[in-house]
Each structure stands twice: as C-alpha cells, then as structure tokens.
Design a protein around this nucleic acid. Structure first.
Length: 772
DNA sequence: CGCACAGCT
C-alpha cells in the first residue's frame, strides 16, 4: 500500500507548509487505494457498513422475498416489504429531512404544469415510493396486530405514506392518526406535504400541533405532533382517547419524550384493548382500541419489538444513492488537522462537488475554518476556489442558512457543521462528507448531595450516527465519505447511543408523571434510569415543595407542573406570588427557557461586547442583568420599527431571536398564571430584592458560599464550583450565590449566577435544614 | 479567570 500521503507522519506540520507540498502527491490511482481503506463492495454499494455486515437487516433485504414467506432463519419475525434494488435518481426525503429538501421536491413536480397535472404527478409519485409496494402487506399487518415495528431506511417514504395508507384503509375510523416527531420543523413540513398529497388544505384533513403553532380542526384525521406535544396531551387525556393510531416516528433517536410516550402507550393499550369481560371497567374509559406503529430508521428495531411482546418487525428498503466509504488507514491524532488535509485531498483529487465536515463543536469549526481559508488563499488562480460556511446551533439563523446558497461558479463549497447537519438540517448538493467521528454529548451526573451537574464532553460517535453522516453525501447523487478513524474503531463503536432518559435530569419528567398518578420508577420503560438519578430528582422536587414527605404531589407541585418550565423556574414563578413580582420573574424565566442564548459571543470583539453589555449590568448578577436587558428591549420595541430594533440588538450583541422566543414563552406563562390564579401583572417596580428572593426559592438547591480561600463551595456537599467566565459575577467575590446550573467542562462552572444577601442565604439554609 | 452538540412543552 502506498504511503499514507496525508497522515500526520508524512506531513507533520501544515501550518507553514506551502499548498504545493500536497499537490505533488496528486495521483488518481492513489485516491482509490490511498490512506483510506475502501470498505464498500459492489453488492451493497452505498449501504452503510453496519447494515451490511453486522446487521441482519441487510440479510432480510437480500434473502427474503417481499412477502417474507421464505424468511431468513434467524429473523423469522422480520418481513421485507419491498425489494426494489436500484437507487433512483429521484430521491424523496423522509421524515428526517428538512423543509428545504421537501420544498425542493415539491417544486420538482414542475412549476409549469397545470394544477390537474400536478395532482396527477403527486399521486404518481406516491405510487413510485419504495414503500408503495408493501402497502397491502403493511396494512394487513397493522390490522392484525396491536403493535407493528416498521424499520424503514431513509427515502422509503414511510413517514408520509403510512399515515395515509392507514387513513385510506379505514383502520382509524374512530379517531385520529397521530404521527409524532422529535422536531418541530419536521412535524410542520410533513403535515404540509401530506396535506398536498391528500389534496386538502392544511389544518383540514391533515394538521399539525407543535408549541406556539397548531393547525387542526374537528375534521383533522392525520395529525403530526412533536413528541413533547403528545406527552403534554397525555396530562389532560391519560388514555389519548382522541387517537385510534399512534405512529411514533424516529423512535431510534430515543428522545426523553419518545421514551415516555412509548412506555405510556404500552400502558394505554393494556387499558383500551383488553376485552370488556376481562377488564370490565377498562372499556368504559375509551370506546376504541389503540394501534401502535413504531418507526425506526436504524438497527435497534429488535429492542422495540422485545419491549412490545415481540411485535412483528417489518422492513422497507430506502432509496439512497450509493456512498463510497473510506476509513483512515491509521488513527489520526488531531481530527481538525486531519480534516483539513482530507479536505484538500478531495479538493485536488476529486471532481467538483460540495464538502460537508462534521465536527464536535463551535470551537473546532471556527479554527478549522480559519485554517482552510488560509490555505485556500495559497491555491493557484486557475484552480477551483473554496468558500466555507459554518453551521451550529448557537450561530445566528441567517449565518446558518448561508450554507444553502449554491456555490458560485468554479468554487467548491465547504460546510463545517456540528450534529445539526446530521438530522435536523439537510443541505442539498453535498457530494463529500468528512466525518471526524466525534461529537459532544451532554450527560447529567446525578448526585444525591451537592446537586447534580451536566457534563459536556467530546466523545466518539455511534455507528448509527456514522451511517447517518455518511448518508448525507448521497442525497442527490453518488457520494463519498471519508472517515477520520480506522475501520476497527468504527467496528468498536456502540451501535446506538445511550437514550436520553439515562443522561438527563429527571425532575421535569417525574413531576409530570406524578400528575398522571404514575411513578417513574414503576413505569414500564425500555430503559430504566438508575435509582440515584431518580432519588436525586425526587429530592429536588421535595426541596421545591412540589412533593411532600411521602413523595406525594402537593397542590403547589400540581401548579408547577402546569407551567411549561423546568420545575425550578416553575417554583420561582409560584413563589413570586407571595413576593408580588411575578411580572419580573416571568421576564427572567422566559429568557432562561429560550433555546438560544441572549448574549452573543463574538470572540474577536470581546472588548466591544463587554462595553455594550455594561449598560445592562446589574451588581446583583445575571438574573437582574437579563431583566434589565429585556426591559430595555421592550422600551425600544415600543417606539422603534423592526429594523431599528434589530440594529439595536446587533449593536449591543444581543440575540433578538431570544427576545422573540421569550416573548412567546412569556405569553404562554401568563395564560398558565391565569389558570392557577397568579396575578401575572404583579410587579415589584424598582424594588429588586423580592425578585432575587423568588429566584432563590426555585434555585434553593443551587447555592454556594464563599470560603476563606475565595473558592465557592456548594451548600449541601463538598463540590467546589467556579463562576463561569461568561457571568457578570465572574471574578467577583460575594458571600453567597445562587445559580441556574452547573456545567463541567474543564472545571465545574456555575452559570447564570446571582449574589444573594447573607441573611437570605441563612434563611434558605434554615429552610433546607427544616426540610432535612 | 476562560466558554456552550442537538431538541421539546
């Protein structure tokens, strides 16, 4: 095998090396056998590797006829529905796709055709989807079984078609068909698409329901919802009696809410589907049985099947272009450096086509972008030039969407992205993927004393994730994926990640389940959190006054559960009633609950950022600083137009999206306040002390005090915490603090910090001791 | 002093 041209050994330092150092290696033959080991084979070209070798799914496809009569021995229950073999040029994105690709596809029907032709084309298209061939068998299985597991590859059309098949078959005469999605954009754009296919306007036959946005009516039969939304519906209708069929899509992602839903569906089905004589009362609660369809795109279908009493697994092939996968021949020490060399290898050796690089986080993305741009400038003028785009959640929307602009002529677009490009956003036109094999993952460490905290560490991805990343190169044509890790590393990766329910704080979930009269420890879940995590959450809820000494829900706890907030913040809202400062608390918690950060970090302009921030700064800390900023924004918003507001935000390095989202959240909270009898307009005016005290009730477990050696120590344990550098109180010394959360990266950092008066700190202590 | 994947009600 030729020398690994781009391995760290051969070109140890790129920083000062001329670009030509690489160019001399250009050799079309080497590109094939080079530092990469080609693990694709002709028979399975483009199929993710794990599907090929380890997984029986591929066997199901190869060995079984479409009606599954002569099934593979080991996988009798699995049944292949479809057998088409050649990937088609015309690929339909499935549920994991973004609105962008879906829109593109709709346009593909032809802008110049008349409406009738368009409708015909849409129906024709439906018939050509891979899943269409399995329609009869699929409906037959769903009719016969209470639970069906559908394993569908990307592009099979399962997410759009299955609900329509069920509707058209009359299987859901007595209720709606719910289709759950982990993401809002998916839910809304799928509903759009399916409404068109049903030749109905959105909100009539086909609707959706996501936070802040609902389009449905009494006529609605197919409803796309976010998983969070259906879990909320569960609280007011514990048997989900509006629905005849619940389809859980993207179940393999195992989000916290999907897991809670899957567990509850099992319970509901037991109640709704048992024969009237066996469980006399059960059927009086709901007049119709429930069908469950679990749709998963990856390998863990067996696990869903086991959970639902060995439910049948149906398999449907996808429609994805072949992706050739190369693994690194030797392990790479520095994945950013390695990614850069791989990029330029592609750039010199491979035909035109855009490149997508997966990296764990913002920092890596920004540094790699700089390097790539620096080297790209050294390119000879007659070469393809390079433009770079970055994509990560913390970045402004407008910046992220630049990746969708087609590259100018004679230019290769290089997109550097986090996991955001793995599932949430589909970028068209990607031909090459470079996969660092790394991602950042949040893991909650529950600790009974001293409070739990989140860790956010870079770690290896899973095989499912690697396959998903590779697949991003094959959405519009054949693609190539370069993995910056060896094949043996790939083979040692876990098949799928740890479900979220094992990795996050359980306070919210436990509180919500308590309202349903359920205990999380007793709920039948696919994966049960360990007892320490449960105990720690119960303790927090008890400290907040949501549970009593017998772990029973208190009236205050019931109120807290009604707020779409972290229980700590819900507690602060409830506490604010006594202090008469609910208006201020709503401002603060709605900003804290927004998905985007308020204060933007632009590393190059640190001084300017600090200067602009000074005018909102409050000596007491971050909570009142947020309040100041929100109040000032509202003053501006009252008198200025849209553009001026935006300019003002930009000038002060504030993210207007956060204000807008917080505004929506705040409206929702005002409604909840009305329901539970809290005057949301009550304001402490200029008096800020009650505001901090209300927050203190919610954050009672998150407090620390200054020690003689000027570190902060958690009040209930030995944990030493440091005020996060982003906080206004960073490097300040105050006797006692409360904080929003702890995050462990290099040290344990407290974020969202406020100073509290010593006397109040003492009374919080006394309060906690009384509790203990 | 030194920093933060993604997503949901």
């Amino acid at each position: 095998m030729p020398t690994a041209t781009f391995s760290t050994k051969v070109i140890p330092k790129m920083r000062n090396a001329a670009y030509y150092g690489i160019k001399t290696e250009k050799n079309p033959k080497r590109a094939k056998s080079g530092p990469w080991v080609d693990v694709s084979d002709d028979e399975n070209k483009g199929r993710p590797n794990a599907l090929k070798r380890k997984n029986s799914v591929a066997n199901a496809r190869v060995d079984q006829s479409w009606n599954g009569q002569n099934g593979h021995k080991r996988k009798k229950r699995r049944q292949s529905l479809v057998g088409s073999d050649i990937p088609q040029a015309n690929d339909l994105p499935n549920g994991s796709g973004s609105s962008h690709s879906k829109t593109n596809h709709l346009n593909g029907a032809g802008p110049s055709t008349s409406y009738g032709n368009k409708a015909k084309a849409i129906q024709e298209h439906r018939k050509q989807l891979p899943i269409a061939k399995g329609r009869v068998a699929l409906i037959d299985e769903i009719r016969k079984n209470d639970v069906t597991i559908l394993l569908g590859e990307t592009g099979s059309g399962k997410t759009t078609q299955v609900p329509q098949y069920i509707l058209e078959s009359g299987l859901a005469k007595n209720g709606m068909i719910a289709v759950t999605q982990p993401r809002k954009v998916a839910a809304t754009s799928l509903a759009h698409r399916v409404a068109i296919e049903q030749n109905s306007s959105l909100g009539d036959l086909v609707g959706y329901s996501v936070r802040f946005d609902e389009k449905s009516s009494p006529e609605t039969r197919i409803k796309y919802l976010t998983d969070g939304m259906i879990v909320r519906e569960l609280m007011s209708d514990p048997l989900l009696s509006d629905y005849s069929v619940v389809i859980v899509d993207e179940a393999h992602e195992r989000t916290l809410r999907t897991d809670l839903l899957i567990g509850n569906l099992k319970r509901i089905q037991k109640l709704r589907n048992s024969p009237p004589d066996a469980k006399g009362k059960a059927n009086s609660d709901a007049s119709h049985p429930l069908k469950i369809v679990i749709m998963s795109a990856t390998l863990d279908a067996e696990k869903f099947s086991r959970f639902y009493h060995n439910a049948k697994i149906l398999y449907v092939k996808g429609r994805q272009h072949p992706v050739k996968i190369y693994h690194s021949a030797e392990s790479q020490l520095d994945y950013t450096d390695s990614a850069m060399r791989t990029f330029f290898q592609i750039h010199t050796d491979q035909p035109p086509g855009d490149v997508l690089i997966f990296l764990p986080g913002q920092e890596d993305i920004e540094s790699l972008q700089k390097s790539i741009e620096w080297y790209a400038k050294q390119l000879p003028a007659d070469k393809l030039s390079v433009i770079t785009c970055t994509m990560f959640a913390a970045q402004e929307h407008s910046q992220n969407s630049k990746a969708f602009n087609p590259a100018p002529a004679n230019t290769r677009k290089c997109i550097l992205a986090t996991n955001i490009a793995e599932t949430s956003i589909t970028i068209p036109g990607i031909k090459y993927v470079i996969d660092s094999g790394k991602c950042k993952e949040k893991q909650y460490l529950a600790r009974i004393s001293g409070g739990g905290f989140d860790t956010l560490l870079t770690r290896d991805i899973t095989r499912s994730s690697a396959m998903q990343r590779a697949g991003r190169a094959g959405r519009e044509g054949t693609g190539v994926c370069f993995r910056l890790y060896t094949e043996s590393v790939f083979n040692s990766m876990p098949i799928s990640g740890e479900p979220e329910i094992l990795r996050c704080s359980l306070t919210s979930s436990i509180l919500n389940l308590k309202c349903l009269g359920q205990d999380l420890s007793e709920l039948d879940l696919m994966d049960k959190p360990d007892s320490e995590s449960i105990t720690s959450a119960l303790k927090t809820l008890w400290l907040l006054g949501a549970l009593d000494n017998e772990q029973k829900l208190t009236p205050a706890g019931r109120q807290m559960a009604l707020f779409p907030l972290d229980p700590q913040y819900a507690c602060a809202v409830v506490a604010s009633k006594e202090y008469g400062c609910t208006s201020e608390i709503l401002d603060i918690v709605s900003i804290l609950s927004s998905s985007s950060k308020l204060f933007m970090d632009i590393s190059e302009q640190r001084e300017a950022v600090a200067e602009a921030r000074r005018q909102f700064r409050h000596a007491s800390g971050d909570h009142l600083t947020i309040l100041n900023a929100f109040k000032t924004y509202r003053d501006i918003a009252a008198s200025e137009n849209k553009q001026a507001r935006w300019d003002w935000c930009r000038k002060h390095f504030l993210n207007e999206r956060t204000f807008l989202e917080a505004g929506n959240i705040r409206e929702q909270l005002v409604l909840t306040c009305r329901r539970v009898g809290i005057d949301s307009a009550a304001s402490a005016k200029e008096n800020e002390d009650p505001v901090v005290r209300s927050m203190g009730h919610g954050l009672a477990g998150n407090s620390a005090f200054l020690q003689p050696d000027s570190t902060y120590k958690h009040t209930m344990g030995q944990t030493i915490v440091k005020i996060h550098p982003g906080s206004t109180l960073s490097d300040k010394k105050v006797p006692a603090i409360i904080y929003d959360d702890l995050m462990y990266t290099n040290q344990i950092y407290a974020r969202g910090v406020s100073s509290i008066p010593k006397s109040f700190f003492m009374s919080l202590q006394a309060f906690k001791q009384r509790k203990a």
